[in-house]
């Protein structure tokens, strides 16, 4: 049962990732990426990282992608770009396959095939975040603040020049 869910999630994740790259219209790319984010969230949930799965949906699917779709719609980019060539895609898969061929046997030897019973619940992640990693956490909030101010300045400048 779990295997079927895993294959389903990873297949859809792969297909939607390819769709992001291959679809000429940016808006459809964005839709494919939203689907991709959900699949990744599902994989997180399968790895017992419940907090991150939810955070993935809230942050990526709920905030970042809405912003991206917002921008695409605002700039009304209907997309006239040509499709990226298939040759490159095939080449990329060849490289990846070669890489995977090299990595996989070494991983199996190093980690074994069974996971630990670690669960990334809200409580455990939160505890670590607010004790050991409190400084990076606060720094991250400053980073967000700087990003907000930066975004406002970047998108406002045009108006100031005109006035």
């Amino acid at each position: 049962m779990e295997d079927i869910v895993w294959y389903l999630l990873s297949t859809v994740a792969l297909l939607s990732a390819i769709a992001v790259v291959m679809i000429p219209k940016p808006l459809y790319s964005a839709f494919a990426l939203v689907l991709h984010m959900f699949m990744i969230a599902g994989l997180f949930a399968m790895l017992d990282a419940h907090f991150l799965a939810t955070a993935q949906i809230i942050v990526y699917a709920g905030a970042i992608m809405v912003l991206v779709i917002f921008v695409i719609m605002l700039l009304s980019l209907q997309g006239a770009e040509e499709r990226p060539s298939l040759l490159f895609s095939v080449a990329s898969f060849a490289i990846v396959a070669a890489l995977a061929r090299y990595i996989v046997p070494r991983l199996d030897a190093a980690f074994g095939s069974s996971g630990t019973d670690l669960a990334g619940t809200v409580k455990s992640v939160g505890e670590l975040l607010y004790t050991k990693y409190i400084f990076p956490f606060e720094a991250a909030s400053v980073l967000i603040m700087v990003a907000i101010v930066g975004a406002v300045i970047l998108s406002k400048r045009e108006k100031k020049d005109a006035a």
């Binding site: 419940h50 907090f51 939810t54 955070a55 809230i58 669960a119 809200v122």
Partner: peptide
């Protein structure tokens, strides 16, 4: 486990 975060 995430409870209300999921609804959010």
């Amino acid at each position: 486990d995430v409870g209300i975060l999921f609804i959010f």
